[in-house]
Design a protein around this nucleic acid. Structure first.
Lengths: 244, 244
DNA sequence: CGTTAGTTTGATGGTCCTCAAGCACTGTGG
DNA sequence: CCACAGTGCTTGAGGACCATCAAACTAACG
């Protein structure tokens, strides 16, 4: 058990502020209530009154809303180090559902635990609220993408954003990353049909920009791709060092 | 100066929790730094480092992101009682711009003021975070609308949501409300062209559902409209009494 | 009374959806 | 061992929805 064995969340927050030993200890203690969930079975349903949040430590999750006509819109994906359902702590009911995309490991965080931790270490509170603000900025950028980018640029932007997020916890680089999402997931996230997602991916591959195949995303020309997607990572607020 | 002369924000938060005299006083004191802004001139530019937030007390504002190709996406509108730029207090830079749609009145809130108020009255802090969570839930619903609703339903849903929000501060009802937005605003918010917005509005009008004309939204058949738009106001977390 | 901002309507075409079918791979049970 | 079902990927054909281009109209305003 060496000191480098930190959780992904710890790793992420450390990119924002340098945490003291005490703060690190409090943070690690939030991880004590360990839970496992299997792929495909919803953890939280929309409309449910949820009294706890989770910190994802391994695996991928998506949060989505279902509509009356059966279509669904994926709002965001969660990767290791991300919070799940932080918002529903304050709102009376969860406004969306969470589905594990693969088998996952998560730590359950009770509202009381969180408030206690906040009271003990204000700097940690700031760091966690930073992460929450960043998540919100990503939803906003997602909104912009769906509203104002065509399918190709939307996909390119999405793959780049995911890469940056994963880089923050050491799971991705400018070369690429492993990604368990299906084309159906991409379709539901990007507001496209699965058929069109397939065509878009082919287009991007044949343009020599990026390949997504067999669970792996490979960037072929990172610079040209960021131009193509108009990707400006400023909204992620993770300045330079990680990917630059 | 009667006791009913509360600010719109006070009115909104009171729908969530009953605030004590002390809490009301602290809240009103947040409004001391009064500012005016004229229509059309941006208050905050994206990329700017903003150290303050605002509470909107009169008028309408929109928050938007501009893209390299010149198109813009309006993320949200702010009406009296709403916060502006609360998120940029924590993030290093504001990730979007704010434009007053009409001449407005707002109170400037420094980060220090806010933290002080939070420390004095935890219940007020909860109420403000509730409002922030609710704003985020609206952005999520907006995302769903753009991703998965066709233009007609998207417009209908949008007009209904605005109505609910305005009702919360006494500026709207099931009959309708005054609305200074142009069809260009609607287009930029809903991810449509202005031309198509016009056609959609005509369609809704001729169906006898809702009319938006001369700065006024009139609901003709509220029940049928909510069905048509698949509008479930639960995500607004403002249970029944206001509109029911 | 010309200018500007906003609204309205028509014509044309592109992006992306829907329907349909086929393929590859994996796991399951006969 | 093989049929079969299930999941995910791939490609084609036809069409709907909405964008773009163009132009006329109204109202407000200096």
């Amino acid at each position: 058990m060496t000191s480098v064995e930190h959780s992904p969340l710890t790793r992420k927050l450390s990119a924002f502020v340098a945490l003291s030993e005490v703060e690190l200890a409090v943070l690690e203690r939030l991880h004590q209530r360990r839970r496992s969930f299997v792929a495909g079975r919803d953890m939280v349903h929309q409309g449910q009154t949820a009294r706890a949040a989770y910190i994802l430590s391994a695996g991928w999750v998506c949060s989505y809303k279902l509509q009356a006509d059966g279509t669904r819109q994926i709002v965001d994906f969660q990767v290791p180090g991300d919070f799940l359902g932080l918002r529903s702590v304050l709102l009376r009911t969860s406004d969306h559902s969470f589905e594990p995309i693969v088998d996952i490991e998560a730590a359950e965080v009770l509202t009381s635990d969180l408030l206690e931790a906040f009271a003990q270490t204000p700097r940690l509170a700031t760091a966690i609220l930073w992460a929450a603000s960043r998540d919100e900025a990503m939803v906003v950028e997602h909104l912009v993408g769906i509203g104002r980018r065509d399918a190709d640029a939307r996909m390119a932007h999405f793959l780049l954003e995911l890469g940056s997020r994963l880089a923050l916890v050491g799971m991705g680089s400018k070369e690429g990353y492993d990604c368990p999402l299906t084309q159906y997931h991409l379709a539901d996230a990007l507001g496209l049909s699965a058929v069109h997602v397939n065509r878009v991916l082919r287009q991007l591959r044949e343009s020599g920009l990026v390949t997504f195949r067999d669970g792996h995303v490979a960037f072929h020309d990172y610079g040209r791709l960021t131009d193509f997607a108009d990707f400006d990572p400023e909204y992620l607020d993770q300045t330079g060092p990680l990917l630059a």
